[in-house]
Design a protein around this nucleic acid. Structure first.
Lengths: 196, 196
DNA sequence: GATAATGCATACGCCCCGTATGTCAATGAA
DNA sequence: TTCATTGACATACGGGGCGTATGCATTATC
């Protein structure tokens, strides 16, 4: 036991985040009992209150973790695209696909905003919106898209994507709806492109 | 006292809906104690459970009431517009403005979806989306907009609008953000119009 | 090595919810 | 009219989750 303490503390924090994330992502924030999921992590509510203040504080930490992962994924997608425009479209598609994942949908698009208010303007705009914004900035500098405020456009796309994802995920036949949704979404994206 | 009973019952129902609506719209669904707001209406939780099954049932009733009001308002807006395109743009603007009202924002865009899941595909799509959809159908028939699935477009606009509203409402300086948001939103709408 | 401080668990009380039960008025049939 | 039944609503009870206060052990500080 050479380097405990700091390490043990970090471990406790990450255990709590992982346990909360699993509970929030499956049964949802409101149904998740702090006693239950801290117990599953081998801890108690005492540790949670100590590290995160309350249940909302833990949700915030969970969201920041997921947001970082989403940002990373978006950056990877745009990095491998042959053109910037293609990279942007790929990014948007990836965003919708992520929004279809139950954990992300539940935490980032349902419970998160409901419990914490508008997540998207915490710090200095979270990563995944900033990523879209940056892509739009580059496209605008290249003269590839119409004249539009890029942060606004990023938020429009963000809002549209998440609603598309909700629509698809809750549809009776998700595949059919997905086709319609993605086609319509790409049509909207295409209309942002400068006709050339 | 000639026609009580049915009338008293309806009155109880509407009292509960009004009380719940006020509580949900101000302090929010999760914070609203059923004992409190039924008490303010001169009733008890017994009446609520009898009429609506549970707290979620009441929320559902509240949402249906608000949705009907929103639909009515959208129809009025588009009815008085000089052209169909203008009517559509006005409808979208009205939609954003409604989404800025605290009660609507809280109940329809925050707590509603979080508690009940995707509201927009309950029955046969609620009124306010159907209203947008109808406007788009007419525009498409007139050849005024690009070829796009109208329900998808309505949902895209719906999602974009509500996120714009959230962005504005939670911004540090709502007026400035509102200008950017509305300008960007109209640019997006304009890009849906067939260039003529 | 004594003391302070930190990480975390335990203990307590409150409030809120769901259900089971009770009550009373209105209705309908004899 | 009377009486039984149903429905509208209140009351009563129990459980569970949350927040806070408190306790305890281990580590940092001197």
């Amino acid at each position: 036991m050479r380097k405990p303490r700091q390490e043990m503390i970090a471990e406790t924090r990450s255990k709590l985040i992982a346990a909360g994330r699993r509970a929030f992502g499956t049964i949802g924030y409101a149904e998740a009992s702090m006693d239950d999921f801290t117990g599953e992590a081998g801890l108690t509510r005492g540790a949670l209150y100590h590290h995160f203040g309350d249940k909302r504080g833990l949700l915030q930490a969970v969201i920041m973790e997921i947001d970082a992962e989403m940002t990373e994924r978006l950056n990877e997608v745009s990095a491998v695209a042959p053109t910037r425009w293609q990279g942007f479209v790929d990014e948007c598609s990836a965003y919708i696909e992520m929004a279809l994942e139950p954990e992300i949908q539940r935490i980032m698009f349902r419970d998160g905003p409901a419990v914490l208010g508008d997540i998207s303007q915490w710090q200095n705009t979270p990563g995944c919106i900033a990523a879209l914004s940056r892509s739009l900035d580059r496209l605008k500098a290249d003269g590839e898209i119409i004249d539009i405020d890029t942060e606004t456009a990023a938020r429009l796309i963000n809002g549209a994507s998440s609603h598309m994802a909700l629509w698809i995920a809750n549809a009776e036949n998700p595949e059919a709806v997905s086709k319609r949704a993605v086609a319509g979404f790409k049509a909207m994206l295409g209309s942002l492109r400068r006709q050339q």
